[in-house]
Design a protein around this nucleic acid. Structure first.
Length: 333
DNA sequence: AACACGGGGCC
DNA sequence: GGCCCAGTGTT
């Protein structure tokens, strides 16, 4: 059964009363200080660059999968200038299977911009952060808070869910973040800067560890006594079924398979493959090995529609290759 | 506002 | 097999 926010788009944006809010503003930061996971990007010696890298990697990606990639990444490219100077092929390989590899390409672009425009230092200002490739509203707020200790309104899927439940009694926030929801959440952030950072971090951690989407552990929640959703009997705990993008048989699935082949290359050779989406292209400085060509040929045989395979491969190994390598790339049949 | 974009793990 | 995960950029 769909929850009420699905049935009725007009959500009540009631704020908790002053007393309740004041209590939460003490409970959440306190809970974070006591219960937070010891993650490397939260250590005091972590640089703003390290925090930025973690935020990009954590977009749509669980912490456990990010941890090893982050460690390798920071060892290899400890400062923005290091990544900016790295070959794109190395960058994509180090990204490994984190998913959404365009994030890696944008992170390299952001590193270049930080090096060129900001003297190699990660900006503190949200608008300046927001201007970097791959950094949107969430990441700008998160870096301002967690890298620089600034007060900001961090709104990710975790925080939106915790606030929706505790303050409004909804099982889940509306599908899209509106300006109304943003302003509503911004009004809850504690005024004190240091407290605000732990407020943001604490709500996020609460959503990740306790107030989870699937099976919330309300008995472990510091807000249990005040939670509107829990008091109402956790209505809508059964997740409403939303329409999902199909996967099997789509171009996207095939693109993933081709990308896996491209990632597998080890020998660095002169010029470039191109990885492209509808947003444009970026070069990957390496060429194909024999085994990669064989793997692509295998994919081509498995795929009943050769034209589709061509479209995918041409999308990934695109036009710019023709400029850089006039002979182009010939795939075996 | 709706889509496209990876990949893996969980129920 | 569908959902979820520290979202962003394009249409």
């Amino acid at each position: 059964m769909p929850n009420s926010s699905t049935l009725n788009p007009s959500v009540r944006w009631d704020s908790p009363g002053p007393g309740t809010l004041r209590r939460w503003q003490a409970l959440i930061p306190g809970w974070f200080a006591a219960e937070a996971r010891d993650l490397p990007w939260r250590r005091p010696d972590c640089t703003p660059w390290g925090v930025l890298v973690s935020e990009i990697m954590l977009q749509q990606t669980p912490v456990v999968r990010v941890l090893p990639r982050w460690e390798d990444w920071m060892r290899r490219w400890p400062a923005p200038a290091d990544l900016a100077a790295a070959p794109t092929g190395d960058v994509l390989r180090a990204w490994d299977r984190l998913g959404y590899p365009r994030r890696a390409l944008r992170l390299k672009e952001a590193a270049a911009a930080i090096t060129a425009r900001h003297g190699g230092k990660v900006p503190e200002d949200e608008a300046e952060l927001r201007a970097l490739p791959g950094i949107g509203e969430y990441t700008a707020a998160a870096v301002a808070a967690f890298a620089h200790g600034r007060r900001s309104t961090v709104l990710d899927t975790n925080i939106r869910r915790v606030l929706a439940r505790a303050a409004r009694g909804e099982a889940a926030p509306p599908p899209a973040l509106s300006r109304t929801e943003y302003r509503w959440a911004a009004a809850l952030v504690p005024e004190d800067e240091a407290v605000s950072v732990r407020w943001n971090a604490g709500l996020m951690e609460l959503g990740a560890l306790v107030c989870t989407a699937r099976s919330p552990r309300c008995t472990a929640c510091p807000l249990a006594a005040d939670c509107t959703w829990l008091a109402a009997g956790r209505p809508g705990a059964e997740a409403p079924t939303v329409r999902k993008q199909t996967w099997h048989g789509t171009d996207r699935q095939l693109r993933g398979a081709v990308l896996a082949v491209l990632r597998a290359g080890d020998a660095a050779v002169p010029r470039g493959l191109l990885v492209s989406g509808r947003e444009g292209t970026a070069s990957v400085p390496e060429s194909l090995t024999e085994s990669q060509l064989e793997a692509l040929a295998r994919l081509r045989r498995l795929n009943p529609d050769p034209a589709r395979m061509d479209r995918i491969v041409t999308g990934l190994i695109g036009d710019r290759l023709a400029q850089e390598n006039p002979e182009g790339l010939t795939l075996p049949d």
